[in-house]
Amino acid sequence: MRGLSIPNKIIFFVNSILLLLLILSYLSPYINPNIIWFFSFLGLIFPFLYVLNIFFLIYWLLCFKRQIWANIIILLIGLNHLNNYIGVQPKDSENLDTIKIMSYNVRLFNEYNWIKNVNCDTILSFLEKENNDILCIQEFYTKNEIPSIGFKYSHVGKQKKKEQWHMAIYSNFPQINKSTVSIDGKEMNNTCIYSDVVINNDTIRVYNIHLASNWFDNDDYSFIKNPKKERIKTGLLNITKKLKKSAQIRAREAIIIREHINRSPHPVIICGDFNDTPLSFTYSKIKNELIDSFTFSGFGIGNSYVNIPFLRIDYILHENSFKSYNYKKINKIYSDHYAISTEIKI
């Protein structure tokens, strides 16, 4: 710090703290939140830490100071993680024989009118027009008969009450085996269901996953968007408690689901709302050696949650032997999530 003015010393101190937090965020995928939960929080805010340190890099560059090198090195170490947030290699299917898969958290088909002028029929009409071959829905809900949405086959994870029907897998192909992944001995039909789908002469196991939410309410989102001085302590404490609890639950769910995937007799495709970012233990555990269709064929910012910028928590993963094309985020706000789709060559 020799040769730095007092303002630059303060700036360097702040920069050093943010660089340390950025380095620690790189460890998030490897550390179970049930052991040390703080790393999961750093993984969550990775995009913001990375952008902030880019600003410091630019500052030191303009000042011609050697402090720039710490920023360059640490940012380069994390450069590969940016591919999970910003797609840079779009791939067209080029008329290959592919199947189109969509994953969508429909938020109970807007049953409680969170979004004005959007109802169940609006969303069902949108889904039918998308001409999907396989559709995985999270937070599924219906008061009446199960809608066909133009598909021949369906698997709705039924619980005792209709209002608890929160997962569904639709397909144009026969589903020969349909079941639920047991979480801690419970048949959690709102966490993970799967169907063995026969496509031509191949059988593919399709998982539909919806992991534990952060349970943020309107006050929490209001605080995130506009933190007020008088609510800083209570707001941060409330959000921190929810983040810790949900991260730990998701980690347990992810471990159980990964063990189930490992026992699958068929190649797998995984769709779902993980409620966690690509730089998380949850994502890393479920993905393992699978391919993330966004990183393989996506383009642009991959955020999938409407209310928070850069937050990517919805995924379509598949076997290495498959190829994915035309990953899309559909920018229609019918839910608090965006629908995502891709075309896969089996």
Rank of each mutant, 00 (worst) to 15 (best):
Leu317Pro: 00
Ile36Glu: 08
Leu279Lys: 09
Ala247Tyr: 15
Asn131Trp: 01
Phe310Tyr: 14
Lys100Ser: 04
Arg312Asp: 00
Thr142Pro: 03
Tyr327Arg: 00
Ile74Pro: 02
Ile10Val: 15
Trp37Val: 07
Ser324Met: 04
Asn131Gln: 09
Leu135Gly: 07
Phe56His: 11
Phe39Leu: 15
Gly3Trp: 09
Ile333Asn: 04
Ile101Gly: 00
Ile11Thr: 13
Val51Trp: 12
Ile169Phe: 11
Thr282His: 09
Phe38Leu: 15
Val14Phe: 13
Gly43Glu: 10
Lys328Val: 01
Ile86Lys: 02
Glu259Phe: 04
Ile11Gly: 06
Thr98Leu: 08
Ile344Met: 04
Ala254Met: 14
Thr122Asp: 04
Met188Asp: 10
Asn80Lys: 14
Asn32Gln: 12
Ile291Gly: 04
Asn275Ser: 11
Met1Trp: 12
Leu127Ile: 03
Val118Pro: 09
Asn119Phe: 01
Leu124Ala: 05
Ile77Pro: 04
Leu20Asp: 04
Gly78Thr: 08
Ile313Ala: 01
Ser93Ala: 13
Asn214Ile: 12
Asp314Tyr: 01
Ile134Val: 10
Ile35Glu: 14
Asn105Val: 05
Lys65Ser: 13
Leu19Ala: 02
Ile193Cys: 01
Leu311Lys: 09
Gly43His: 09
Lys152Gln: 13
Phe310Ile: 11
Leu243Asp: 04
Thr234Trp: 11
Thr295Lys: 14
Tyr305Glu: 09
Ile6Met: 14
Ile286Gln: 02
Pro309Asn: 12
Glu253Leu: 14
Phe281Glu: 13
Tyr112Asp: 00
